[in-house]
Design a protein around this nucleic acid. Sequence first.
DNA 1: AACAAAGTGCTTATCGGTGAATATGAACAT
DNA 2: ATGTTCATATTCACCGATAAGCACTTTGTT
Lengths: 143, 143
Amino acid sequence: MLIGEYEHSLDAKGRLIMPAKIREDIGEKFIITKGLDGCLFGFSQNEWTNFEEKLKTLPLTNKNARDFVRFFLSGAIECEIDKQGRFLIASNLREYANMEKEAVIIGVGTRIEIWNKDKWKKYNSEENISADEIAENMTMLGI
Amino acid sequence: MLIGEYEHSLDAKGRLIMPAKIREDIGEKFIITKGLDGCLFGFSQNEWTNFEEKLKTLPLTNKNARDFVRFFLSGAIECEIDKQGRFLIASNLREYANMEKEAVIIGVGTRIEIWNKDKWKKYNSEENISADEIAENMTMLGI
DNA sequence: AACAAAGTGCTTATCGGTGAATATGAACAT
DNA sequence: ATGTTCATATTCACCGATAAGCACTTTGTT
């Protein structure tokens, strides 16, 4: 189970440290893709192959399906954690998520998310994340 | 599994580098053909025969189906990757996809797609996909 | 035969990715 | 407080992938 929030910084070549506590769970090789709200998603191999299998079944003839598959697969890349615990974030993904220097990695259960630090702070300070409100919405989901 | 997004440029003779990370999966010889949404499709030998099989099952009696099959088969050409990792895009296909200089190759699971860079950027900036839609689809697929 | 156009192959320079070495800092035990 | 260990940050050097230019070969046309 992926949890926690970790701050780290990219080096000159766009590499980022994978927090020690997450390394085990995510595996030595894992996949990152474009995510929602301007962050990047990171999946373990297991979670990812699961997802791929489902994408494969979508029909080529349906435009919506094509768009969806293109978004995730073209945005995806396999990463490997090097001996020093770092991994490279491909330049197009760095661009997509506005990663320059300071980054935040958070664990969200089945995946991790990688954020530009400022964006993450801002996202948290906005009132859209009042805990009360979230709690209220949860009741609808039956929790 | 073909994934990722790679930018490269055609040389004066219409050759394009096959990204190193894709070369293995697609094979030394592969097939490209006209694709949907104004790009070119590229298949490994295996995926191509797979695709052909599917086309074969379409009913000859249906005009739509006949058009569909003609579209893909008439445009198809076998390509070979040279010692320097490049392949030639036939002139009729270059014309079809408006390939001049800058190109983008993306992996989409069972195939690659080759886009004119500007066209690809434009495609991405259009709201083909909204975050909500993606989120919705993700839940449906159980991610 | 002469020429143009298209395809193929080679060479070189540059840049990004990769690995190693070292420095910094936090956590913990003595 | 001191030293030890582990995790993270930073810098540097090297290597391979790619871009670009050029030359040669093949093919087709006049």
